[in-house]
Amino acid sequence: MSYTLNFAAVWRSFDLLLQGLALSLGLAVIAILAGSVLGLVTAFGLVSKSEVLRRPAGLYVTIIRNTPILVLVLFSYFALPQLGVRLGKIESFVLTLAVYSGAYLAEVFRGGLIAVPPGQREAGLAIGLTEMQIRTSIIIPLMLRNVLPSLGSTMISLFKDTSLAAAIAVPELTFEARKINVETFRVIETWIVASCLYVATCSLLAALMRAVERRLAVPR
């Protein structure tokens, strides 16, 4: 092996990588926020007694969770315009990741919901709370505490999925890295640096989630 590591070329373009990372984070934050709302509504649908709510929720999760995200990304960018839905590549990707994370988070939230004892709802009913008040004051706060450990993992996964936006030329971290790779031929260096940026960001995210977990922990 006669490859000598030389990071100089990568450092010269480091700004680009950071800009890419910023875009990756932006994509992830918006998509996960939207996906959380979608996932929460869907999770309540999944555990509902009413078949009219359960069926569509189940169908959504089944279809989206069982399709590779790259296929979904390509579908919404290339196929949706044929159906008259024209979106920019960033909008198209955010929408896809939001819909995708909604399906994953719905399952995470569902697990958290069924772990809340039914007595909690009954105690809420008994003091005269409405179903909606019970959800917002009791069920959702308890569900969130139940799911925090797996929620952290899911969020890290979803953040890393932003790298698939490179497939439709969204200038996020992976796309920028590939560009630098092609322009400088510093293959190993480029991908090492890009990987390090992903690892650092995900570690930070994990630490943040653990902090939230500690903060919300119920004292006993």
Binding site: G119, A123, L125, A126, L129, S137, L142
Partner: peptide, 30 residues
């Protein structure tokens, strides 16, 4: 339901609220 009060076999206190928080919830929301 607020005409009656109920105490349960399993207590069913809200675990994420303090004792005072448990008592206050219905007073504030209902």
């Amino acid at each position: 339901r607020a005409l009656t009060g109920m105490a349960f076999q399993q207590f069913n206190l809200f675990p994420h609220m303090t004792a005072a928080g448990n008592v206050m919830l219905g007073l504030v929301k209902v």
